[in-house]
């Protein structure tokens, strides 16, 4: 890992240089409501400095809605018709600039499930992440409860830390180092800078009370004994079973596959699906293994907090707080965590 120091103007130049070989995206103020979301940028001044996360998670870059898996010509009778052609997106590489540590971490976590998925991995391959640490956390941030940090580096190629006048840039991967080099104009950071960053890190982490290793604690509990706990019923009575929480969650990654044919041009696409939707599990016969809302609500949380950790280790939540903010009826995953952690 190499650590550099760069001025605001220097960063702007980085972005401008990068645009020569990458598509560069950043959080941009989208409308008068103060909502920020990802859009292509050409310079630093376009990028929003609001604390917290963008409206949509960066999974839109890894699991595009929709993603074409194959194309084909449909039922034309020609020799080639109905033959699936692979369409691994080999588009231009891109840099996401201004990624929050929680979102960056989601790419790694989802990658655990998508290890064998060539489409996801191709997107990982061609997407470089330049993160910014969080000096200020939102009331809904809880990255520290689930194994992250406002200064976390997991998944990132570069982490930027804003200091009084400048930025410190930690190049975390080889790709990060080459990005810094392509950007140019950076000096190596001094010991003083490093010390300052370290104290900022400690301050930020202390500001957010951490739950003692949530994943570990969750694993030590017999969560299946909570399968019929009363609180699920209460949650599901409020829930309207929409897809807001799952679609906007960086670590919700379920999808459906379907074929679409328009004028003989066909494609097999995958698009976001949600375990909150009744059709998610419904059979052709009408039988539905999770036909009740309470089963679906429970599945969403159990998947994140029990099934995923059982399989892969970490909790499938990065604590970004989107689901809490965007749920129309304010279902709060932190309360569910507390309920589950209360189990003996």
């Amino acid at each position: 890992m190499k650590v550099y120091k760069i001025s605001r103007e220097g960063l702007d130049k980085w972005i401008k240089h990068w645009t020569e070989s990458y598509d560069v995206f950043g959080p941009v103020e989208k409308n008068e409501n103060g909502m920020t979301d990802w859009a292509e940028v050409k310079g630093l001044d376009e990028i929003s400095t609001a604390p917290g996360t963008t409206k949509q998670p960066i999974k839109t870059f890894y699991l595009p809605q929709p993603e074409t898996l194959f194309t084909f010509t449909s039922r034309g009778g020609e020799p080639d018709s109905d033959v699936l052609k692979e369409t691994l997106d080999e588009g231009r590489p891109r840099v996401l600039f201004g990624v929050r540590p929680c979102d960056a971490r989601s790419v790694t976590l989802n990658g655990l499930a998508y290890e064998e998925d060539p489409y996801y991995m191709a997107n990982v391959e061609r997407t470089l992440l330049v993160g910014v640490s969080c000096r200020e956390q939102c009331g809904t941030c809880f990255c520290r409860w689930v194994g992250g940090s406002p200064f976390g580096t997991e998944g990132l190629d570069i982490l930027l830390i804003e200091t009084e006048q400048n930025f410190v840039a930690e190049a975390l991967t080889d790709r990060g180092v080459s990005l810094v080099e392509a950007g140019g104009g950076a000096r190596e950071a001094s010991g003083e800078d490093l010390a300052m960053v370290e104290s900022m890190r400690q301050e930020a982490e202390q500001a957010m009370s951490a739950m003692p290793d949530t994943a570990e604690t969750l694993r030590s509990k017999d969560l299946m004994s909570m399968y019929n706990a009363d609180f699920w019923g209460g949650l599901s009575e409020s829930c309207i079973n929409c897809g807001a929480c799952t679609f906007l969650c960086p670590t919700c990654y379920c999808f459906d596959i379907q074929d679409e044919v328009v004028r003989k041009k066909g494609r097999r696409i995958r698009y976001w699906d949600s375990c909150m939707f009744p059709l998610f599990t419904q059979h052709a016969s009408g039988h539905n293994p999770r036909g009740q809302k309470v089963q679906r609500v429970r599945n969403r949380f159990m998947h994140k907090l029990k099934y995923f950790p059982d399989r892969f280790g970490p909790v499938s939540c990065v604590g970004c707080g989107r689901c809490i903010r965007e749920c129309p009826v304010n279902i709060d995953i932190r309360e569910v965590l507390r309920d589950l952690l209360g189990v003996e």
Binding site: K30, C242, G243, F247, L248, W272, L279, P328
Partner: peptide, 24 residues
């Protein structure tokens, strides 16, 4: 243009109760 098809609008609505919505 920014609709993500989460159907929160539909599900929040007391009028939308078709057993299978046309979108599904």
């Amino acid at each position: 243009s920014s609709c993500i098809r989460c159907y929160a609008c539909r599900n929040a609505c007391p009028l939308c109760y078709c057993p299978t919505c046309f979108v599904d």
